[in-house]
Nucleic acid binder design. Structure first.
Lengths: 204, 204
DNA sequence: TACAATTGTGAACATGGTGTTCATAATATA
DNA sequence: TATATTATGAACACCATGTTCACAATTGTA
C-alpha cells in the first residue's frame, strides 16, 4: 500500500551512490571507477552497492534519466512553434545543459564510457523525439513522409553525435552557434550546406 | 631497407588472429571474447597475441580499417553526381556492406562492442566525408555554409546511427529504402519530413 | 646448407576487480 | 518497544589481464 516511501536509508544510500559516481567520473574517468571506489567515497560497504544496483552502468543510467526527465519537461513547456518563433530549436536546452556539464558528458559520451551508455542515451532521445513528433503530427493532421522510427533515430543520432563532437572539440562554437547549425541542417538538410542544389523538389 | 615483407609467420599469425576474432564475435559477442579465446581458436600461444597487438580493440580496428579502405575506394570510383544520376547516394554501398555482414555489425555497433569502437568507426566516416566534401567544394568553387567539421560529423553520426538502428531492428526496410530515406533527409532535412514547412527560406 | 635473427611457446606469477554468502549490527517504521 | 528492513565487513571463489623468461621453431640470408 505505501510503496510510496522507501526507507530513509534507501533514499540516502542511493543518493550518495549517485553523487559519488558522478564526482568520481569527473575525477578519474568512467572505466577507472570501481565499485569499491564508489562505496568508499560514499562511506558505504561494498556489499551495499549490490543491494541496490546491478552494476555501474545501471547506477549511472538511473542518475541520467532523472536529469533528462527534468530537461524534457522544461523543453516541452513550449510548443515547437514557440521555440522556432524565438529563433531557437527545442534542443537549445540540450546544448546548454551539455555545456554546463561539459567535462562530465565529454567522458560519458566519448564512447569509452561503459558498454552501452551512449547508446542508451540515444535511445532516450529517440523515444522523446518519437512521442513529440507523433503528437505534433496528430495536431496538424499531417502524415510523415518517412517512418517515424527512421526519423526519430536520425534526429537522435545526429543531435547526440554533434553534441559529442562539440564537447570533444572543447566547444569551439557557442551554444547559439551550435543551435543555429543544427537548425540549418534540420531545415534544409546537408545537401544545401555543401552547395548542392537539388532539382527544385522534383519527384516527391 | 626491406621493411616491405614482414616475416611469413607474422602475416600468418596476424591473419589468423583477425579471422579468429571476427568469427568469435559472431559466435559469442564482443565482450565475451577473451584473448585466450582468440589465441586458442587461432592455435597460437596467448603470449603471441601481445607480441602483435595491445588489446582486442586494436586487433579489431585494424581488421575494420582494411575493410573500410576497400569500401571507400569503391565508393570513390564514382563521382557524387554519378551516384545521384543513378538515383542513389554514395552511401548505398555502405548500406549494402552492412546488410551483408548484418550480424557482425549488429554486435560491433550496438555500442556494447568495446570502449570506443563505434566512436572510432564514426571518426573514420567523418574523416572520409570531410575529404570528399572538401574536394568537391573545391571543384565547384563553392563555399560551405557550415564549418566542415560540423557538417562531416553530422553526416557521420546520422549515417552510422541510422545503420545501427536498421540492423538492430532486423532490417525492416530494404537497402534501397534506407538509401532513399537517407537521401530525403540529406536533401531536405528533417523538418520537411515532419510536415513543417519553413518560412520559405527567410532569414539566411 | 648452415647460421643468426626473428618469432612463437607455455608455464608461472602477480594483480585487481567482480559478485556472492553469511552472521551480525544498526536503523527505521508501526 | 518490537519487528522488519537495511547496512556491514570479512571471507571466498573466480577469471581475465598482462608480463616475464628460458627455450623451441621457423625464417631469411650469407
Amino acid at each position: 500500500m505505501n510503496q510510496r516511501k522507501p526507507d530513509r536509508r534507501v533514499q540516502r544510500t542511493r543518493r550518495q551512490l549517485q553523487e559519488s559516481l558522478t564526482s568520481l567520473i569527473l575525477a578519474k574517468g568512467y572505466d577507472a571507477v570501481t565499485i569499491e571506489d564508489i562505496t568508499e567515497q560514499a562511506n558505504l560497504g561494498r556489499t551495499t552497492f549490490y543491494l541496490h544496483y546491478k552494476d555501474k552502468e545501471e547506477l549511472l543510467m538511473q542518475s541520467l534519466e532523472a536529469v533528462f526527465d527534468d530537461l524534457v519537461a522544461q523543453i516541452q513547456q513550449r510548443s515547437i512553434d514557440d521555440w522556432v518563433a524565438h529563433g531557437q530549436g527545442p534542443w537549445t536546452l540540450a546544448f546548454e545543459h551539455a555545456a554546463e556539464n561539459a567535462r562530465f558528458y565529454q567522458i560519458i559520451l566519448s564512447g569509452q564510457g561503459g558498454d552501452g551508455i551512449k547508446r542508451r542515451v540515444q535511445n532516450y532521445i529517440a523515444a522523446t523525439a518519437k512521442t513529440t513528433i507523433t503528437r505534433r503530427a496528430e495536431e496538424l493532421g499531417a502524415s510523415l513522409s518517412l517512418p517515424i522510427e527512421v526519423l526519430s533515430n536520425y534526429i537522435a543520432s545526429s543531435l547526440l553525435g554533434l553534441i559529442a563532437w562539440w564537447l570533444e572539440s572543447e566547444q569551439t562554437y557557442t551554444v547559439a552557434q551550435m543551435d543555429d547549425f543544427f537548425r540549418q541542417l534540420t531545415m534544409h538538410g546537408t545537401a544545401r550546406a555543401i552547395g548542392f542544389v537539388p532539382l527544385t523538389g522534383g519527384e516527391d
